[in-house]
Design a protein around this nucleic acid. Structure first.
Lengths: 231, 231
DNA sequence: TTCTTGTCACCTAGGTGTTAATAT
DNA sequence: ATATTAACACCTAGGTGACAAGAA
């Protein structure tokens, strides 16, 4: 079995409609997809990998209220269905770099996919995950048992398990569309600390799953806004 | 077979009497021990590891010429044998973190032991290599074939190969003893760039094995000195 | 006297959202 | 009008030798 780490944080993002930046060079996810594993055979070899499947066959676009003079001034906005999804890309897979490894090794500590990067470059040759901007995706986590038998191909069907956490769904974007997502990223991602303008306080040090809701961070936000429509 | 990377740099250090800093928290080696591998079975699993054996059973000490008022002012100095070596430590081993991996994987690119750290803390529990300061060591590189047979223990003797590069010998120290070693580290280690006071030039960008000898860097050094005696 | 330790400024290396310019 | 790109300031994270103070 598999337990999603930082579920509370994922939930907070998911409530607002998670967005993940995609760039030509590749961008990491935040939150990072991290899991704890249980019940593996400690001695057996496993491959751990992720892929991303479209949540629907829609393309989205932003509706901005008028007037909206300076682009960077924040106004409330909402997602609209813009039509049918763009043709899907080959659908790459990301192997956890420690693969293959023994079950004991995987279970010893949290498994973090922090090397995984998202790109919108269809010609990417860095092995990054290719996604279409303005489309929604569901991350999937796969555990593959490395079968030592000679004819292991025959058992491919029974030698892997797939785990899906719906709270990790997101919209791929080239720039953030929902200001509250931006603020939550700034509040919770250590690398964005330079953009925190309220309290240089104890977030995320004091953040414990199930402790206070993150909304306290929003109360101090300079640009509180109405909730965007969830697609 | 195994080929030592950056051999020219190792040779330059070795000529002066290489020193490696050991600290309580653990210090990386510079130069980093890196190798290219050839002739492995691409499909077989191997473990790669290093250990460090005493070059001799001696303890060394520095002889400083008098007067030597400010400690940091540089004077020539020389190594003296100070007596018998301190009792050897358990003799730890450092597995390359990618172990085990297929021969094809190891041969695909340079294998770098840049996660290996040296410490003088006998009680270290970070898995670092424990060395005695003021003692000389010979790094060793081992390739272990992971035997798939059930009774693989029986073949342990024939399933590994050890490689020794004498030019990687060094003296473990808590502070540099030979100023020319310090200058060569500063000149060649990117992390020490802050201490380069001569040319903010193209080293090590333009350094190619067998190109110009590094002495050009010393000609510009502020404190040229006589060669220390090699132990 | 000699060696060791801890702190520091100064780097490398790379992950953030911002912003202005550009593309569609 | 909306979406994408590239340069940027500002972070995290951690590897350097210098230096002053302490230990043996």
């Amino acid at each position: 079995s598999v337990q999603l780490e930082m579920k509370a944080l994922w939930d907070e993002f998911n409530q607002l409609g998670t967005e993940m930046i995609v760039t030509k060079a590749g961008r990491r996810m935040f939150p990072t997809f991290q899991v704890k594993l249980f019940g593996m055979d400690p001695m057996a070899d496993y491959m751990l990998l992720m892929d991303f499947v479209p949540v629907d066959d829609k393309r989205y676009r932003m509706l901005w209220p008028l007037p909206r003079r300076p682009r960077y001034a924040f106004h409330s906005s909402s997602w609209l269905v813009a039509g049918k999804a763009d043709p899907a890309t080959p659908g790459r897979v990301h192997y956890h770099p420690d693969s293959p490894a023994k079950g004991a090794q995987w279970m010893k500590q949290i498994v973090s996919f922090d090397k995984l990067k998202l790109t919108n470059n269809l010609l990417d040759d860095n092995g990054h995950i290719i996604l279409n901007s303005m489309h929604r995706y569901q991350p999937r986590f796969h555990v593959v048992y490395v079968d030592p038998r000679k004819d292991s191909e025959k058992y491919a069907e029974e030698n892997f398990k797939t785990f899906v956490f719906e709270e990790t769904r997101f919209t791929a974007v080239t720039a953030y569309q929902n200001h509250r997502i931006t603020q939550l990223k700034i509040a919770s991602n250590p690398f964005a600390k330079g953009f925190r303008d309220c309290d240089p306080e104890d977030w995320p040090r004091n953040h414990r799953p199930g402790a206070l809701p993150l909304m306290s961070a929003f109360a101090r936000s300079r640009n509180p806004v109405a909730s965007p429509t969830q697609p």
